[in-house]
Computed example of a mutant assay.
Amino acid sequence: MDHTQAHTYLLSKPFSSVGQPFGEGVDVFKVKDKMFATLSPGKYNEGETRHWWLNLKCDPDEAQALRDIFDSVIPGYHMNKRLWNTVILDGTVPRGEIERMIDNSFLLVVAKMTKKQREAVQVYL
């Protein structure tokens, strides 16, 4: 999955929106004003390919398991390292797995909403 495909998938979630509150180059995806993902060009060293980085909320146990399985899943860059993972979009993580991680991040955020907000979103799931 590349950054364009990730962007499209993130915005396909019900009530999702994108903005750049941290400045140009860092897309922040929200569901009903609650952040569930960020997408930005990642760090790189001169001479290396620059990959996009996708930050996703994650269950703490699952977060560590994903880091153990995939070299391109690291603790959340500029995020709570226990609750967020960064997925480096370098092609090594299967698209279906990235979509599953996005879905989980979205659902974790929806689960913390008020009952009224949660029900409004769940109608579309």
Rank of each mutant, 00 (worst) to 15 (best):
residue 6 A to F: 11
residue 39 L to P: 11
residue 117 Q to T: 02
residue 42 G to E: 12
residue 53 W to V: 15
residue 19 G to R: 10
residue 50 R to W: 02
residue 53 W to F: 12
residue 117 Q to H: 14
residue 9 Y to P: 02
residue 85 N to Q: 05
residue 33 D to W: 04
residue 105 S to M: 06
residue 73 V to L: 08
residue 91 G to L: 14
residue 93 V to A: 04
residue 26 V to L: 13
residue 23 G to K: 11
residue 4 T to I: 13
residue 64 Q to C: 05
residue 75 P to I: 04
residue 74 I to T: 12
residue 57 K to C: 05
residue 63 A to T: 02
residue 104 N to V: 00
residue 50 R to I: 03
residue 90 D to G: 11
residue 22 F to Q: 09
residue 15 F to D: 12
residue 64 Q to N: 02
residue 3 H to P: 06
residue 35 M to F: 09
residue 58 C to F: 00
residue 37 A to T: 03
residue 89 L to N: 07
residue 72 S to L: 06
residue 94 P to H: 08
residue 96 G to R: 12
residue 69 I to Q: 12
residue 117 Q to R: 11
residue 112 K to D: 00
residue 98 I to M: 05
residue 16 S to V: 07
residue 38 T to N: 08
residue 84 W to M: 07
residue 58 C to T: 09
residue 118 R to V: 02
residue 18 V to F: 04
residue 23 G to N: 07
residue 35 M to G: 04
residue 24 E to D: 15
residue 38 T to L: 14
residue 74 I to G: 03
residue 46 E to D: 14
residue 95 R to I: 09
residue 46 E to K: 01
residue 78 H to R: 10
residue 44 Y to G: 01
residue 105 S to V: 07
residue 36 F to S: 05
residue 75 P to N: 04
residue 40 S to G: 01
residue 107 L to W: 08
residue 85 N to A: 10
residue 55 N to C: 11
residue 106 F to P: 02
residue 39 L to S: 13
residue 21 P to N: 04
residue 52 W to M: 13
residue 70 F to A: 10
residue 68 D to K: 06
residue 96 G to V: 10
residue 34 K to Y: 02
residue 95 R to C: 09
residue 107 L to T: 01
residue 46 E to Q: 07
residue 99 E to S: 02
residue 123 V to F: 12
residue 113 M to V: 01
residue 6 A to G: 03
residue 72 S to W: 08
residue 60 P to T: 09
residue 94 P to L: 06
residue 104 N to A: 07
residue 72 S to Y: 09
residue 7 H to T: 09
residue 55 N to H: 06
residue 85 N to H: 06
residue 43 K to C: 03
residue 112 K to T: 03
residue 104 N to R: 10
residue 13 K to V: 10
residue 88 I to M: 08
residue 3 H to T: 08
residue 81 K to I: 10
residue 12 S to L: 09
residue 114 T to F: 00
residue 96 G to E: 15
residue 32 K to D: 05
residue 64 Q to I: 14
residue 123 V to I: 15
residue 55 N to F: 05
residue 22 F to W: 15
residue 105 S to K: 01
residue 38 T to K: 05
residue 85 N to L: 10
residue 73 V to G: 09
residue 90 D to H: 12
residue 121 V to Q: 04
residue 41 P to H: 11
residue 54 L to P: 08
residue 45 N to R: 04
residue 71 D to I: 13
residue 41 P to C: 09
residue 49 T to R: 13
residue 30 K to I: 01
residue 4 T to F: 10
residue 65 A to M: 07
residue 68 D to Y: 00
residue 120 A to Q: 15
residue 22 F to S: 06
residue 84 W to C: 01
residue 26 V to T: 15
residue 58 C to S: 15
residue 115 K to W: 00
